[in-house]
Amino acid sequence: MKIEFTLNGEKKHLDVHAATRLLDVLRGHFGLIGVKEGCGEGECGACMVLINGRAMNSCMIPMGNLEGKNVITPEAFCQSERGRIIEDAFMEAGAVQCGFCTPGFIMATASLLNANPDPDEAQIREALSGNLCRCTGYTAIVRAVRIAAGKGAGAC
């Protein structure tokens, strides 16, 4: 089927099978390797992207659901003002180890701060609970989100 959607600010027209996973289109067709496949079953969050501002697992989204939607991937998000604040916060907190989970956490952070610019620790932990990280034990990631919120990543 023919699908029209916005990807990182650009209009895209694509003729794909409705059941094709967004993940495969982003990685395979557009070469957006910041979107990772960690499980392919909606459990790990490594494949997260922003769809209309909310973080979603792209491995669970069929292209058929994408008509008219606005998709942002970690690559493009990190170019934005907010992206830069969040990136710096992750650096400062030491929230990155192997990095395979990281772009997904950046998306989850952006999504949380969109909805709640000043979350407390419990709200942060809740909001990140769809993303797995096996390296950090989450402490540093939670701190990174707090730092980002403190620097106004939710406001801009």
């Binding site: 990772k36 496949e37 970690p74 990136e87 650096m91 990155v96 990095g99 950046i106």
Partner: peptide
């Protein structure tokens, strides 16, 4: 005293190439 991790920014931005990205 901590220094900035030298591999981290690339990973955050989704630029680091893991094997599946090759």
């Amino acid at each position: 005293k901590a220094v900035e991790r030298t591999d981290a920014r690339k990973k955050i931005r989704g630029e680091a190439e893991y094997i599946a990205d090759r």
